[in-house]
């Protein structure tokens, strides 16, 4: 699958390929502005009007998802492919009870009556371990705590057993104990339904806990991809190395963190060669001139860097 979204005159995501199989969790990790959320929206065909997929294709269970008519996509959204957003308050309808919202989704995709749809909604809330699901189904989003809202949104996304779940920073706004519950919940549900999960996050520790494979993005491009143990054992791209060094881990006391100098470049003002070159400790003349392509460094460990061999 290749996506290239274009807003106005600049590319937001360029030449990104990814594949995710049933029961697999693929994590896309990167900092703000790397294009990970745009990727999620493109996968759902929910890009804002200004953005377009200018090249590439998305195949979903063998179908060309980008070529399907909008009505067919609406049939599939929530049924075949579903999305969990970071901020449930903006994703949920504020003037509808959460039970009614979930029941609406059920009736949109399944030929069932009101009563049956409602009971499936309550069952979906029970599945996500919502306390008192009967009561909560009748409540509105503002009446629930952040963790309960996130559960409600997950129930809404998963009520029709989608084959593919796109989760964009699903736990970023949550406290760490609630995050642990939500991550546990996602993996339970995945085990049961066999769904393929694309989890988008900035948090490498979350990646380490849940991913099977990982894609690291920088400035709209994939810079590294590997199985999770491979990536954490032997990160090869200098950006991945930098990110891992920058995460405070406590051990060894208050030493200095390996910060990455500078900031992420603006997508409309990318440098000519490798976008990471201005911040990279290994950048050479070639990096500033020529953009490196992804190359396989063994067993599907893809890296886009001219100086990988030195980085080992």
């Amino acid at each position: 699958m290749r996506i290239a979204a274009e807003s106005g005159a600049f590319e937001v995501v360029s030449g990104l390929s990814l594949a995710v199989r049933p029961r697999e969790t693929l994590c896309i990790v990167g900092e703000s502005g790397c294009g990970k959320s745009m990727t999620a929206l493109a996968l759902m065909r929910l890009l804002p009007e200004a953005a377009q997929v200018s090249a590439g294709s998305i195949r979903l269970g063998g179908q060309d998802f980008l070529a399907l008519p909008e009505r067919r996509v609406e049939d599939m959204r929530g049924d075949t492919i579903a999305m969990i957003f970071q901020e449930p308050l903006t994703a949920l309808n504020p003037v509808m009870s959460i039970g009614a919202q979930i029941a609406e989704a059920v009736r949109r995709h399944r030929d069932v009556g009101r009563a049956e749809a409602w009971s499936r909604a309550v069952a979906a809330l029970a599945t996500v371990r919502m306390p008192q699901p009967d009561l909560r189904a009748r409540q509105f989003p503002h009446e629930l705590s952040g963790g309960m809202r996130q559960r409600a949104m997950i129930a809404l996304a998963l009520v029709c057993d989608p084959d593919v779940v796109i989760a964009d920073e699903p736990t970023t706004a949550l406290d760490v104990t609630i995050q642990a519950q939500i991550l546990g919940l996602l993996s339970d549900l995945q085990e049961r339904n066999g769904a393929a999960v694309v989890l988008i996050t900035h948090d490498l520790a979350v990646v380490a806990e849940v991913a099977d494979r990982v894609i690291v993005m920088y400035a709209g491009r994939k810079v590294e991809e590997a199985a999770v143990t491979v990536l954490f054992d032997r990160p090869l791209h200098p950006y991945t190395l930098g990110l891992m060094g920058a995460v405070p881990r406590g051990k060894g006391g208050a030493g200095r963190l390996a910060d990455i100098p500078g900031t992420v470049p603006a997508l409309w003002d990318l440098p000519a060669g490798c976008a990471f070159a201005p911040r990279c400790p290994r950048a050479s003349e070639r990096c500033r001139r020529e953009r490196p392509d992804l190359r396989d460094h063994g067993a599907g460990h893809l890296v886009a860097c001219w100086n990988v061999d030195d980085a080992r």
Partner: peptide, 25 residues
């Protein structure tokens, strides 16, 4: 203890099994 147990760890070889217990703050 609960806080420490809930914090994700940067090591895919030392994964913990998060539970989806419904205890709310």
């Amino acid at each position: 203890e609960l806080l420490l147990r809930s914090a994700p760890v940067m090591d895919p070889r030392r994964r913990r099994r998060f539970s989806a217990q419904a205890n709310e703050i």
